[in-house]
Amino acid sequence: MRVSSVASEAVQGLRRNLVMSVAAVVTVAISLTFVGGALLIRLTVDRLEDALYRDLTVSIFLNDGITDPQRQEVAQVLSGTPYVEEVTYESKEEAFRRFKLQNPNDPDLIANVTADALPESYRVELSDPEQYEVVASAVQGLPAVDEVVDFREFLESLFGILGGLRNFALATAGVQIIAATLLIANTVRVTAFSRRRETGVMRLVGATRWYIQLPFLVEGLVIGLLGTAIGVGLLAAGKWALLDGQLEELFRNGIIQNPSYTDIVLGQGPWLLALGLGISAVTSLLALQRYVRV
């Protein structure tokens, strides 16, 4: 089997119906861009969860003017509660120090706050951050306890938004993949129709089914390859324009990580390539059933 003749037949096929081929490539590219976008969102969320949950603490803020025994009681209850890994006490002075550290660019704010205005608290680290409710119900209602705050609640709403974005990207990708499948099938069929004399002769003289299908398979794979390359390019361009450009502030605090180009090209590229090639290969083989049946 001659590689050059197979390749040239595939290229001829693509040129013969150029408009359809371009449409197929663009659709593959767009669908993979959305798939890649969804993957990037997931990657970001995973990293964020890792970073935040690793030292995620439940804060138990205490009332003003409580007695020592009352304070002890909270610590005792906490040490007897399951999932509690570590309990740290934070006094008003320590809270003030942390407050100053968290707002270094805001001297006016610091000047207006005194240590006394801030509540003392227990910071509780959980072995399983999902079990926040257990801790909350254990200490809620104790006379010393003012409020139990789980940082997860803040995060959950953020994750909710990101999850929605990801689902939207996945749904769009799904629709686009269906469109890409139909376009590739159509492109390959048009080529098969225009080459039906050749395939007819091939069948007649006893060429194998594999040999007959190969040029069409290659044609489909070229579409998949070009589409994937453009799709990855679009993702990188999207990162440059959107994440590095407009949403740049989102990443400045360092909590949410900006996905790198390496993430896009090396992390996702292979998956997207496999998806793009897989779709186009399966589609072009299925589209040909009618023409190569022996």
Binding site: R197, E198, V201, V205, G206, R209
Partner: peptide
């Protein structure tokens, strides 16, 4: 079996009224 059909066809030559040449 269908994968042996190509071998069968290699042992049979075919000529048709409409020639079926590749133009």
């Amino acid at each position: 079996s269908s994968w042996k059909v190509p071998a069968l066809r290699r042992s049979i030559g075919c000529v048709f009224q409409d020639f079926r040449l590749l133009p």
